[in-house]
Design a binder for these strands. Structure first.
Lengths: 206, 206
DNA sequence: GCAGAACCATACGCCACCGTATGGTTCCCT
DNA sequence: AGGGAACCATACGGTGGCGTATGGTTCTGC
């Protein structure tokens, strides 16, 4: 053998991280329920014996996988956003765009909100949710909205985000299809969510 | 025995409808996966023998349950809405309110969007989704928005609705708590989603 | 008041998965 | 080189669910 170490495609021995990676992969494909020890072992070309050496049980793997995902996910989003200049309006818009495309990309996220009730998932999800809503609300305050409205707007924006994610999964046909149409819709969303209302008092259109 | 017939609390013989009702109940409680024949039988105080007399298999029950739910659900919403006067703005607002509270009520709906991928669920969900988006888009057109914007607004509104439903499940703590706060938030949502934008062209706030 | 249909109970075989036990390999250190 | 630790394979028992088989019970028409 020429190459030893941890990076060859056919590694002889597995680390817990390998199992976590595989777990996240199958979560993305088939949801939480798809994380089964024996199939995973097969997928990794090994056996349960390996698994139960590295992990206490299935739940431990789940927890580890969720922890790693949460870390990477939040890190990715916030990092991307905070280094995006100081203008809160720009940052908000960037956040919306980023998170929208991410929602259609990260199928782990989608799988998790599909299993929000699971004891291992719930805390992760509430953490992420509240943190993001808070973050967005702060952005709205920075823009100049009063605290209460900032929170409302944040809630609405986050709801729209979650729903969009769901739509992308359950009825993608309903979403704008072409590249240009998608872009126009996104623009519409950003504007609607971030623009102050026209006339206070009477909001009735013609 | 004094009372015979089909309405006593302890009925001797079961109908498929009884099974469907029970199925919907456990879907509401524990999701699709909770629909298991043996536990259901136990819950109904009977045995699998009964079940497999009335249904081909578990999937048949699922399909029947979903069909009944879809019927009742769409009927409830559209009926409630169409007999609500002719003013499209009023109807839209009423729809939003109605559907928002419904989302926190009907746990079957929530359970279903959590299992949107399931072959028995997907068609039901896409039907409901597209139908509602279309309906809402028509409402926006009636209000006076051009077709494209009407569709965008409808999409956004529906996304927000879906997301709100998810939020109510996975992080209810993030939603407005008190009765009054909830009401104010709802008002905010309705206004934001239905009010035409202030200035075309420049949508940049101060 | 009984025959046949409708309905239900029990027992069984099957499968997929979890977790354990136990004995092999392979590595690493000296 | 050889011994212990790290790692993996295989076999096993257990559980929970699906679907079938087969015989029992209740209802209904005549």
């Amino acid at each position: 053998m020429v190459v030893a170490g941890t990076s060859a495609t056919t590694r002889r021995r597995l680390t817990p991280q390998d199992w976590v990676t595989a777990a996240l992969a199958v979560i993305a494909e088939g949801g939480l329920a798809a994380v089964a020890v024996e199939p995973l072992a097969q997928r990794l070309g090994t056996s349960k014996g390996s698994f139960y050496w590295h992990f206490e049980n299935r739940d431990a793997l789940l927890t580890a996988a969720l922890a790693r995902w949460e870390e990477q996910y939040t890190a990715a989003v916030t990092a991307e956003n905070t280094r995006a200049g100081a203008d809160p309006v720009q940052r908000l818009r960037l956040l919306i765009r980023r998170v929208t495309t991410l929602a259609e990309t990260d199928s782990v996220y989608v799988a998790l909100i599909a299993t929000a009730g699971h004891p291992a998932v719930a805390p992760v999800l509430t953490r992420i949710t509240e943190q993001r809503i808070d973050y967005t609300a702060a952005l709205f305050r920075d823009i100049g909205f009063p605290a209460r409205e900032a929170r409302y707007r944040s809630l609405l924006a986050y709801s729209a985000h979650l729903g969009h994610t769901e739509l992308a999964r359950s009825a993608p046909g309903a979403l704008p299809r072409g590249r240009a149409d998608r872009e126009a819709y996104l623009q519409h969303v950003v504007t609607t969510l971030t623009t102050p209302r026209a006339l206070r008092g009477s909001s009735r259109p013609a």
